[in-house]
Every structure is written in structure tokens, then in C-alpha cells.
Write a protein that binds this DNA or RNA. Structure first.
Length: 546
RNA sequence: GGGCGCGUAGCUCAAUUGGCAGAGCAAGGGACUCUUAAUCCCUAGGUUCAGGGUUCGAUUCCCUGCGCGCUCACCA
């Protein structure tokens, strides 16, 4: 724990004013001294199909709070529960082998075969996809698969306690239900050992023994809870049981869990009445919406946008920054359209602000907020010293022009910026390459047409006469006189191109764009010409003069 | 019916636990004898949905109303 009398600690304390810092303080305030020295924060979802960015909000929320807790001196255990012992209730659209999946409904998602035939099960397929996408983001929780826990009998005592308290649980749940649970209700759920389906009726003779009969295949069996098996608690009891089992002190939840009478509400009552525990500190997070993917949605995944889809367009730190900048309760959208440019500009600006030295003015507050947000957004934990140099990366917009001139060649794109003196060392080369890769994927898949161009592969011959011919001739001469000219060298020639003719650059340029990029406008002409180089430009311009 | 959230410039939104209402785009003007998908400077734009309360001070906290969205009352 941090010593509040320590001067630097209290100075530091003023900086810890991000929502994750406040949540961390609340969580620390909720524990008493008798608790374990290590504190547990938790996230978790059901892998019932492709895991999307909306689900990511849960993990990133906990990751940010975990980092905030560590910054306050806590020893943190971050667990991620894969609720893969849940029922496969619905076949998502767009998956392969829909008939096979249809036949596997009502079984545990951990027992449904992988329709892609790549992993041991349906659940594991989507689990490994999602876990893989967390690696570049620096998120590394301890993953727990509930199917394994239940089957190993880890929760035997928790289940037995629920059975012993079944009447209390029934009353708690009934207070929030329209149709009350029957008097003989048992807090049990599970799957038939024979057919794997969840159409099972339970009986509890007492102690550790549970018996069931399958309504589907009429299989009957008796299970000793201590040995584990296909028996679990229903969600509303399962959640509080695991809070107590893991001593979770912070866990967020989506809106569906968060309303009055929802599962957090009943869980809070159950954990206290049955397990003599305490509900974790909680934040409810809102949904993440998607903008600008119209017509580009991958048919194999329905309407779903994954974390990997976001990483295709956004740098890892930037994706973290986007979530760290939004308070959990507010709904926001992740954009794939022209907003991407604006967002990159906002991000670069905020990062410069985060690194600025303080000057005692009121702007310091904004600097502190930006700094703290970037400390939390950083892929690996870091402290930002005011006045320290900010990472240097060329603007996304500039990269979009250059990377298209080089047809997606990242190395040439990077060396272009090196030649311009905007990229200096290996770190900057790496950052530039990473951004160029994102940019190129964006241009190809999502950019609106007005941001895209393609240099002609073969020259087109236009009839060029009169003043247009004169000006084009001058442009060609200018390029020849500057075989490896920089943009600065070319600019003076541009100013003289139209002298003595009826044309202006505005009326001439469409011809040049047509010859070069097959449309009547494009990136700033001098940038385009010097980026593509005379050796590519001249063969496209000259044929129309012959 | 219960709960949560939202309502701020023409548009999209900030204001991070009460401290001079701000950005981007759009609009208008100017600069760089370099086209735009630019860059830089300036201007304008507001009863912060309405009404009340707490406070030295409210976009922020409390109450009421209106409008919008989501969610629970199945399962998870």
C-alpha cells in the first residue's frame, strides 16, 4: 500500500484521477484488513459465437482498473472467466456447417464441435481467436474455463451451499420474477452424460449427492458433487458463488446485468445470504456501436466486428486509448469511415499534450488528464514525465497519400518519410511501419472513395492540344530537370507552369490527375509527383505528347 | 411497470469524481504568387431540453416534468 504521508505519493495521488483510478480507490476501500494481500479483479463472458468489440469493453475495463490498482500499490490478480459451460442456444448466422450446429443445440458450447474444424470445440475456436487478439494489447489475464472447473468438482462446496440455501435463493429470485419458481425448485443446471443436452430434471437426496433424469434420452444417473460432472449452478447463482470463491473485489457488467432485478442485483443478495460474502465493486458499461463498415461486413461473421478487425485499422495503443478515453457508462462508436483520420489526429494531439511540460496555467489540468489516460492506454505500463519527448509518427493523412503511391509497400513508405526527415531511428521506423500497415488496410477496405487513388499501371493516351499541351510539356521538362527532385524543388516550377497561357493550375490539374491516377483530382500534385518519382510519372505523362 | 443512460454551437461530440461552457467538421474572412482530400491565422455561432432546489459558484449534485435510447421482469 502507498503511504499517504509520502510526499511524492500524494503528489502522484493527484494525478490518479481517471475513472479507472476512482474505481480502483473504491475497490480498495471496500476491503477490510483481514482480507488477502492479493486482490482479485474479474471479467468474463460466454463464448457463444464470435467475440466482438462490445465484449472487449469488459476486459479492457478490468485491465485499466487492474493497472490503476497496481499504481496504487496493490498486488492484483486478474482473472478472466470463460463461461463455456453454458448452453448453446442459437446458431449464429454466417457460420459454416449450420446443420451440424443445429443438431448440437442445447449442449454445452464446450462440447459442440468446431464448425471450422480447427479447434477441439466450438467454444475453444472463438476463445482462442479472442485471446490471440488480446496479446498485442498487452492484456494478459489468467484465463479460467468454467467447464473445466465444474467438471473437476472445484465448486462442489459452493453447489452444496446453494442446495442447502435453496429456499432463501428461491425467495430472492422470486421477488424479481413475474412467474415464481416452483416450490420444489433446485438451484441446479447441467447436461446429460449420455446425450449432452440440458433437458435434465434434478433431485437432491442430500449431502454431496445429486441425481438426475434426462427428459431427452431418459438417461438417469447419480453424481457426487465432489467428483464433479456435468452439473453446475444456474447463472444467477453461479455468478455470486464465484465472487465468493475467488474473493472478487471488482468486476464490471454490461447493461443487461445492471438493471434493478438483474443478475448483479440478485447476485449481491445471494452472495451475502448464502456465501456470507460481498459483491464486488461494480461498474456498468454501455454498448459499443460500429460506424462506417457498411457493405464491408465479413459474411462469415454476420454483423460482428472483432477486436482483430479494430486492430487492422487502429494501432494497439490507440485502441486502448479510445476505450480509456470513454467512461464506461457512456455509449460510443468505433468508426471505420473517414472518422478514422480525425481520430488519429485527435490521438496524436492528445499524446503531444500528455507529454507537454506543465507551466502552472489552467492548461495543466488538461495535460494531467491526457497524461494519465496515456499511461493507462500504453500497451505496457508506463509513467509519462511532463516535458519528456512524445513518440514521433507521421500523420495518418500524410501516410495515406504515400502508402497508396507505393501500392502498399510499407518499407518504401517508411523510407519516404525517412528521406523527408520525419523519421529518424529504428523506433520511429517501427511506429511508422505499424501505422502505414493500418493505413493501407484502411484505404483498401474502408476508406471512402474520395480518399483513395491508384496510380495507373499503364499509360493512357489523351488528345492534348493548345495550352494544355504547352503546360503539360513544361511539367514534363520540369520533372526531367529534377530527376530525383524533392517536393520543395518542384514547387517553384509549378508556379510558372501556366504563365502565358489561358490555363491556371485549377484548370490544368484535372488533366494531370487523369493521366496519373485515372480521376480528375487527387493528392496535392507536387506531393504525388515527387512521391511516385519521375521514373513512374514521366511514362504516364509523355505518351499524350507524342 | 421497475432500473440505467442521454438531451450542450447548424452537425458530431468534450468538459474524468462543482471552478471563467470547449474542440472537430460545416459557415464567413484572411495568409502562403503550390491544385486538394491541404496547412496556418482570424470571426461568428449558446437561456447547456423545461421548471424548481442546494451552493460563493451548477453542464456537473438533488427533486419534478417532457423527449429519446437501452435494459430487466425468459435464459445466460
Amino acid at each position: 500500500m502507498m503511504d499517504p504521508k509520502d510526499h511524492t505519493a500524494t503528489e502522484r495521488g493527484k494525478d490518479l484521477s481517471h475513472w479507472a483510478d476512482h474505481a480502483a480507490r473504491r475497490a480498495l476501500g471496500s476491503i477490510d484488513d483481514s482480507g488477502p494481500s492479493e486482490i482479485t479483479v474479474a471479467a468474463g463472458i460466454t463464448p457463444s459465437g464470435v467475440i466482438h468489440v462490445g465484449n472487449f469493453r469488459e476486459v479492457i475495463t478490468v485491465d485499466l482498473v487492474a493497472r490503476a490498482l497496481r499504481d496504487q500499490g496493490a498486488d492484483v490478480r486478474f482473472i478472466y472467466s470463460w463461461d463455456d459451460f453454458d448452453v448453446f442456444r442459437k446458431v449464429p448466422v454466417g457460420l459454416p456447417a449450420p446443420k451440424m450446429l443445429e443438431q448440437n443445440l442445447r449442449r454445452s458450447v464446450a462440447d459442440v464441435p468446431d464448425p471450422y474444424d480447427e479447434h477441439e470445440s466450438y467454444a475453444v475456436h472463438f476463445i482462442s481467436q479472442f485471446e490471440g487478439s488480446l496479446v498485442p494489447l498487452g492484456i494478459a489475464p489468467e484465463f479460467i474455463r468454467q467447464s473445466e472447473r465444474y467438471r473437476a468438482g472445484v465448486y462442489a462446496a459452493g453447489i452444496r451451499k446453494a442446495l442447502e440455501s435453496r429456499e432463501a435463493i428461491r425467495q430472492i429470485l422470486n421477488r424479481h420474477r413475474t412467474h415464481p419458481l416452483p416450490e420444489d425448485w433446485l438451484p441446479l443446471a447441467g447436461f446429460c452424460d449420455a446425450c449432452g443436452q440440458d433437458e435434465v430434471d434434478f433431485c437432491w437426496p442430500g449431502d454431496w449427492k445429486v441425481e438426475y433424469r434426462c427428459r431427452n434420452c431418459e438417461h438417469e444417473a447419480s453424481v457426487d458433487l465432489r467428483e464433479g460432472g456435468n452439473i453446475k449452478l444456474p447463472w444467477r447463482v453461479d455468478w455470486p458463488m464465484r465472487w465468493a470463491h475467488e474473493q472478487v473485489i471488482f468486476e464490471p457488467g454490461g447493461k443487461d446485468h445492471s438493471s434493478a432485478g438483474g443478475s448483479y442485483d440478485t447476485g449481491r443478495e445471494i452472495v451475502s445470504a448464502v456465501y456470507h460474502g460481498k459483491a464486488p465493486e461494480y461498474v456498468a458499461y454501455d454498448f459499443v456501436r460500429i460506424k462506417g463498415r457498411g457493405g464491408k461486413i465479413s459474411s462469415s461473421q454476420g454483423d460482428v466486428v472483432t477486436v482483430q478487425d479494430c486492430l487492422d485499422v487502429y494501432e494497439p495503443e490507440m485502441l486502448r486509448w479510445i476505450f480509456a478515453s470513454q467512461r464506461p457508462g457512456s455509449e460510443f462508436q468505433i468508426s471505420f469511415d473517414a472518422d478514422v483520420i480525425k481520430l488519429y489526429e485527435d490521438y496524436d494531439r492528445a499524446r503531444r499534450l500528455a507529454h507537454e511540460a506543465e507551466d502552472g496555467s489552467k492548461a495543466d489540468k488538461k495535460r494531467r488528464i491526457a497524461r494519465r489516460t496515456f499511461e493507462l492506454a500504453s500497451v505496457s505500463p508506463c509513467r509519462i514525465e511532463p516535458g519528456s519527448p512524445a513518440p514521433v509518427v507521421p500523420p495518418f493523412r500524410a501516410i495515406s497519400v504515400v502508402v497508396q503511391a507505393y501500392d502498399g509497400d510499407l518499407e518504401r513508405t517508411v523510407s519516404h518519410f525517412e528521406t523527408l526527415g520525419e523519421v529518424h531511428d529504428e523506433t520511429q521506423r517501427m511506429l511508422c511501419r505499424e501505422r502505414a500497415a493500418c493505413c493501407w488496410r484502411w484505404v483498401q477496405n474502408f476508406a471512402p472513395d474520395e480518399f483513395r487513388y491508384r496510380i495507373r499501371k499503364e499509360a493512357v493516351v489523351r488528345t492534348v492540344e493548345g495550352d494544355h499541351r504547352i503546360v503539360l510539356q513544361r511539367l514534363v521538362e520540369a520533372l526531367k530537370s529534377l530527376p530525383d527532385g524533392s517536393e520543395a524543388d518542384l514547387v517553384p516550377h509549378m508556379k510558372q507552369l501556366c504563365e502565358g497561357t489561358e490555363l491556371t493550375l485549377k484548370t490544368f490539374c484535372p488533366l494531370a490527375y487523369d493521366l496519373l491516377v485515372e480521376r480528375d483530382h487527387g493528392p496535392k500534385l507536387t506531393t504525388l509527383l515527387t512521391t511516385m518519382g519521375s521514373e513512374r510519372a514521366l511514362p504516364l505523362l509523355e505518351p499524350s505528347l507524342e
